[in-house]
């Protein structure tokens, strides 16, 4: 369902070319829970941005559900993001001026759901992450773990096929991180494909597949090696 063939990403600034990703060949199948690790500056976020259609690749091929997304216009990419991809960010990226209900509502409005449908989805997702009772609260009134749960509810509200998580536990203490990770595992078990960028090797091992990015090159980490690392 997600396939990258010889995909490269080059950043050009003045006379300097920076190869963020080099000849990435990767397939992600439905139901996968793929962890992405690598040192800082290795290209993890760039990989996630390209996978999530947040930015374009420079060369190679990227197929999403068989569709070559490289040639799509910005508006079509926006529509695909809204329909197929959910995002979880390290900094939660909730809109501080809106309460939890309205935060979850944002992608649903872009999708064009009617008010009744939106309300039903918002209630359902906030209940799923255990925050239905606080839907009128502002993000600042919640703990980091709770904010990340709201972000997960928002990501899932549109029923995406992929969930892309960028260091989802990076700003959380270990207890909250475990809670968020358990929630992600539960979501994956219910059929949502997850790609998670993380620094935390322990969390990475809980994914069904792992890749490592180093100097822009992607390599699959075999299950055996995962155990050795553990």
């Amino acid at each position: 369902m997600l396939s990258m063939n010889n995909l490269c990403k080059v950043f050009q600034s003045a006379d300097i070319q920076t190869h963020a990703l080099r000849e990435v060949n990767l397939s992600v199948n439905e139901g996968d829970f793929l962890s992405v690790t690598g040192p800082s500056g290795s290209g993890k976020t760039t990989f996630l941005n390209i996978a999530g259609l947040l930015e374009n690749h420079s060369s190679g091929e990227f197929l999403l559900d068989g569709e070559n997304v490289g040639a799509l216009k910005d508006s079509a990419r926006s529509r695909l993001r809204n329909q197929k991809i959910g995002f979880i960010f390290q900094g939660f990226n909730l809109i501080p001026d809106l309460n939890l209900y309205d935060n979850v509502d944002v992608p649903l409005r872009y999708r064009g759901f009617n008010a009744r449908e939106r309300k039903q989805r918002i209630h359902s997702q906030l209940e799923r992450v255990g925050l239905a009772s606080r839907m009128k609260h502002l993000p600042a009134q919640l703990s980091g773990g709770q904010q990340q749960r709201v972000a997960i509810a928002r990501a899932l509200a549109t029923d995406p096929r992929f969930l892309l998580a960028d260091e989802p536990t990076g700003n959380l203490d270990s207890e909250m991180a475990q809670g968020v990770m358990s929630l992600l595992e539960e979501i994956n078990q219910q059929g949502t494909t997850i790609i998670m960028v993380t620094h935390d090797t322990e969390l990475a091992q809980r994914a069904s597949r792992s890749i490592q990015i180093k100097d822009g090159r992607v390599s699959e980490v075999p299950p055996l090696m995962k155990r050795v690392i553990a």
Partner: peptide
Amino acid sequence: TRRALGATKGQ
């Protein structure tokens, strides 16, 4: 974030 969640430039 809004763009990531699916907002077009027009929106």
